[in-house]
Amino acid sequence: MKIVVCLKQIPDPDALPSDLVIDPETGKPAANKYPLTISPFDENALEIALQLKDKVPGTQIVALSYGPESAEQTLRKALSLLADEAVLVKKETSKLEDGYGVARVLASAIRKVGLPDLVLCGRQAGDWDAGVVGFLLADELGLPCVGFVSQVVSADGNRMVFKTEIEGGWQFLEAELPVLATVTNDETNVLRMAKIKDIMMAHRRKVSVLTLSELGIDGGDLERCRVHGGLKELFTPVSTTVCEFIAGESPAEKALALLGKLREARLV
């Protein structure tokens, strides 16, 4: 079986200050230094791929990333977990691109490396949290799409059964291969630790680099399909942490007042 896992390198949102300023041009923090990480749901996707490789002998994992040179770190991390191949499509602009453009680039790259049995993506990237690329990619590739997968329950040559999240529960869903799955987290798909020996070896392995022109994509085209052109404004929501004490003469009065506040905030 062949699996392509799409990995995005992002500024670690948890490691950014609360007074974060985002540059609307690049979509990235305005500060010049911030820690980078693999988008968390992409890590869950990678773990699912690794679990399949553990179970199904002969499984080949291709880690694919579209990003700047620094995204090579992301691919090294996948290599240190024994992904078989790493492919970086070099992003030629620092400008923010929308999901349509990214999905087109990824689709071309996947066609170039050979259409696999399974394409895995995180359900959304942890920076802009849009959650569209995986689904658009399925359409670009003409694949059926299974969203919000937490586990692969079984796999034979032609079909796979996924456990997927639905509103208020979960379901088992069977899909014909090839298929694209977007992955959500659960306790079974936390990315494993690498062995130090494999981290060392990963430094020596090759990351294949593809350019947009090698994929037959015109960078200018990508620019033109920027839907983020509709981006009007970025602002930091003000959060008040001053405690408002609920007034009242009796517990009953306070309970009513509290309920009123919660209703106002649409919490009950």
């Binding site: 948890d14 950014l16 820690p35 991390k77 630790m193 130090i196």
Partner: peptide
């Protein structure tokens, strides 16, 4: 040093992740 090889390669034990993130953020 041994911990450092893992952490610097992006393999942070789950329980330490919010700690290190907060060190950067706050």
């Amino acid at each position: 040093a041994l911990r450092g090889i893992l952490v610097e390669a992006g393999f942070v034990p789950q329980h330490l992740d919010p700690i290190i993130s907060s060190l950067y953020a706050n």
